[in-house]
Write a protein that binds this DNA or RNA. Structure first.
Length: 377
DNA sequence: CAAAAGGAAGCCA
DNA sequence: TGGCTTCCTTTTG
């Protein structure tokens, strides 16, 4: 959260440029806390509003169109020493409209350094229990989150000190890739939106609005293939779905960007880029085999940042987990399996089938909504 | 009342 | 045939 969420970057970028341009989002940023800056507020909000700004990164993830409501930790700042727009070299042309620009490419090394510095300067120790930043699954989990209260995660801090900022950048990109890969596995869709069928589009829309608590779009994108969807402009999205069209468009842009990056990586095999390794690594259940419920649950559990609110480990070592929001987990499972009528009653019946098979059991001390993998990871 | 447990039947790749 | 899904009844906390 401390670092600009690429989702938000994309959103900001989209809002401030015409498609096809490659403008660093950071160029649009100004920071007051930065030495040499004269702006008085890091967020552009009055101090009182900064204090009472919404708590979670949901705001950033949902990309409220009203920039005055941006969470302070998103640090939508203004910078006075605006640099000329950077044009990245030789981005391959896509065959379809829409932009494969993106936030990833535009998070250039020095921008990252600057952002990290700003993060340090503006981080406020959390009052009370730390909020789970789970609504912004782009920069996420596994010790890579920058939302670590004051300062950076040890891993990132070390890298900043070493000046390995390019690595930081690739880590961020890698995390985005992993999140998208995870969503692909859960939804059983391809990473490249242009290949989506109309059904895939519906799945993705449902999934995104569900994950980010967006207003329901209904049939706004019905009958659209992925190619059609990619061809829509942000304005088209807004017109089709006024409450959340621009946010959906921003999410789609990230997916398109990731697909573009993946394509670019695969064209350059000799470099064995990290992104590709990540895609390969995360491909365990994309082999065409239908996913099993226990695998699905495990995948959710491995993404506490995104799903910690609905399912979490009580003891990862023992494989004990708790379903915190049974309806939510059931809905996710229903989405994954194309079973809109899925509910916890049915899901739990399936879990109980695992008792006989020795895959999942109830823990020794049985508790409601608590289960245990017989063979923990 | 929701969750747990499990029987029974059906669907589908 | 396996792996669910759906529906159901009964029990539990």
């Amino acid at each position: 959260m401390g670092l600009l969420c690429p989702m938000w970057c994309s959103y900001q970028t989209n809002r401030s440029k015409e498609y096809g341009q490659r403008v660093s989002i950071v160029d649009k940023i100004t920071c007051s806390n930065l030495p040499g800056s004269s702006t008085s507020s890091a967020t552009g909000l009055p101090a009182s509003q900064q204090q009472s700004a919404p708590e979670t990164s949901e705001v950033g993830a949902m990309g409220s169109p009203d920039e005055s409501t941006v969470h302070p930790s998103l640090i939508v700042l203004e910078r006075e020493d605006i640099k000329p727009p950077r044009v990245l070299p030789s981005a391959p042309e896509r065959t379809h409209p829409g932009v494969y620009l993106s936030s990833f490419d535009t998070l250039l090394t020095e921008d990252v350094a600057w952002l990290l510095k700003v993060t340090e300067l503006t981080s406020v120790p959390p009052a009370g229990p730390q909020q789970e930043p789970e609504q912004c699954p782009i920069i996420d989990s596994q010790g890579l989150s920058l939302d670590m209260g004051p300062g950076l995660s040890p891993k990132l801090e070390e890298q900043v000190e070493e000046g390995s900022l390019e690595q930081v950048q690739s880590l961020v990109v890698g995390e985005v890739m992993k999140d998208i890969e995870m969503a692909c596995k859960l939804l059983n869709i391809t990473p490249d939106p242009i290949e989506w069928t109309a059904g895939n589009v519906q799945k993705w829309v449902l999934w995104t609005e569900h994950l980010y608590r967006l207003p329901q779009v209904g049939g706004a994108f019905r009958e659209l293939s992925g190619r059609d969807l990619c061809a829509l402009s942000e304005e088209d999205f807004r017109q089709r779905c006024p409450p959340s069209g621009d946010v959906l468009h921003a999410h789609l842009d990230i997916w398109k960007s990731a697909a573009w990056m993946k394509e670019r990586c695969s064209l350059d095999e000799s470099k064995a880029p990290e992104g590709e390794e990540l895609w390969a690594e995360a491909d365990s259940s994309c082999s065409g085999q239908p996913i099993h419920l226990w695998q699905f649950l495990r995948e959710l559990l491995l993404k506490p940042h995104s799903y910690g609110r609905c399912i979490r480990w009580l003891s990862k070592e023992k494989g004990i987990f708790k379903i915190e929001d049974s309806a939510h987990v059931a809905r996710l499972w229903g989405l994954r399996k194309n079973r809109p009528a899925m509910n916890y009653d049915k899901l739990s019946r399936s879990i109980r089938q695992y008792y006989k098979k020795g895959i999942i059991r109830k823990p020794a001390v049985s508790q409601r909504l608590v289960y245990q993998f017989v063979h923990p990871v």
